[in-house]
Design a protein around this nucleic acid. Sequence first.
DNA 1: CACCAGGCAAGTA
DNA 2: TACTTGCATGGT
Length: 226
Amino acid sequence: MRGRLLRIFDLLLEHFGQRHWWPGDTPLEISIGAILTQNCAWRNVEKAIDNLKGRALLELNALHRIGTEELAEIIRPCGFYNIKAKRLQFFTRVLVEEYSGSFESLNGYGLDTLRERFLAINGIGPETADSILLYALGKPTFVIDAYTKRFVRNHGLAEAGNDLAYDNLQLLFMDHLPADTYLYNEFHALIVRLCQTYCKKVPLCARCPLKGDRGLAEGLTALPHF
DNA sequence: CACCAGGCAAGTA
DNA sequence: TACTTGCATGGT
C-alpha cells in the first residue's frame, strides 16, 4: 500500500502541479476558513472571509470581542451562520484564555496534545482539527474530508463500512506514508483537485480518469490525456 | 424544482 | 453504539 500511495501522489503531483494549499494568508485566516467551510461551498466562505477582512476582524482579539449576533450577520453568506459564529468564538476563546492569544505559543505543543485539545472544543471535529493542525500549524496529520472519502471508496483503497470511518481512513494514509507535513499537505490538496474536476457528485465519479477495471496505477498513467 | 457543497453536535432507539 | 436531524446560504 505504501508504494501504491506514493505512486498515486507522484502521478497526481506531476499532473496537477503544486496546489499551494490552504487558501489564506495567516494561521488565523486558515483556521477561520476551516470552521466556516463546514458543510458548505468554499465560494461562500470566501464571501464571509471578505466581510471579516473588510471589518478588520481577521484578528484574534477583535473576533473574540465582537458580539456573537453581529458576527453571525457578517458571516451570513457561508450558511449555518448562527452556529458558526459561536464555533468561531469557542475557538478564539481557547486561544485567548489558554494560549496567550497567539498562534506562536501553540508551536511548543505536540500534535497529539493540540489535537486532543481542539477536539474538546465545541464545533471542532476531526476534519476541522486536522485542517488547522496541518495547514495553519504545520503539524503532520492527514486531513480526511468528503473528497478523500469519495476518492478512497471509488478506487477501492478501502472496503465500505467501518473502514471508511474518519479515524480508519486517516490511518490508511498515515500508516503507509512517512509523517511529513509537506507530503500530507500536498497529497490532500491534490485529492481535492482531482475530485473537483472528475468526481463532482456522490457516490460515483463515472468520468474520473482513475476509475476503471485496469486498476488504479494503470488508470493513473492515463491522467495526462484528460 | 431538487440537489449539492472541503461537518458537527445533539437527540433518539 | 448506530442512526437521524438541525443548522442555512448560494450555485447548478
